[in-house]
Amino acid sequence: MASAPSKLYSDDVSLVVVLLDTNPFFWTTSTLSFSHFLSHVLAFLNAILTLNQLNQVVIIATGCNSCDYIYDSSKTANQSFGNGRMPTLCTTLLQNLEEFMTKDEKLGIEEAEERITGSLLSGSLSMALCYIQRVFRSGSLHPQPRILCLQGSPDGPEQYVAIMNAIFSAQRSMVPIDSCYIGAQNSAFLQQASYITGGVHHKPQQLDGLFQYLLTIFATDLHSRSFLQLPKPVGVDFRASCFCHKNTIDMGYICSVCLSIFCTRHKECSTCGSTFGHAQSDDASATNRKRKAPDS
């Protein structure tokens, strides 16, 4: 970090925390190859850094079994540039990414035989928020932070609680979560994340033009967003996951005390421990059933 008196910030100085989906199971099925994806992202990051000398970029890899920081422009900025920014960015990022993948794979083998195919979005979101909190507390002058999720893997309903918590804390600290979903189905989590935090969610139609999407939509700094109309999804998928089996449901039971969501009837809330009253009939106690339907 630069010494305090020399921190000069203008309106559009931004800190972009990019969450990179590195789930190998997704990338082997994707139409967009991982190397293309990376080259688009690298050029995009360089573009962000070019826009303002004080702009900062942090990249967190979202793996299957772990998450880790793989690049932080504030840490490499002070080092000698040697042969330019872009090559340095490329080599450090790719080096770290490779190490990360090896580690992630090992963890996967140790964990279980059970195949895990989602990526740990909740973990990387939390790491991003922690990083941003640290920036907030570093002093009164800091760049405006935002999070960008580049996600391709389908939602892991089992992470529902953790992700929602992350989203709400992002909302509280006024950090918008932008999301660009490059997978097949759309992601309900990311839609909700962007909707709740006031970020932009977009699902590119043409994946070979990803770079253009990134530059046109996601490179827009928060200051300019107040003057621009950015793409908005027509509807947001508000479906929730139940706390008990982590299934995505659109109808379920809600604890009247703590608002935990369950897909089947329980005698007692597993979260807060309140005991539920008995309905008159076992098979049809739908009185406290609530719908969550796609909103338009």
């Binding site: 772990s66 892991g156 992470q159």
Partner: peptide, 10 residues
């Protein structure tokens, strides 16, 4: 919370 996906065991 961060690293594992305990939901999958269920």
């Amino acid at each position: 919370y961060f690293d594992s996906q305990q939901g999958n065991t269920l």
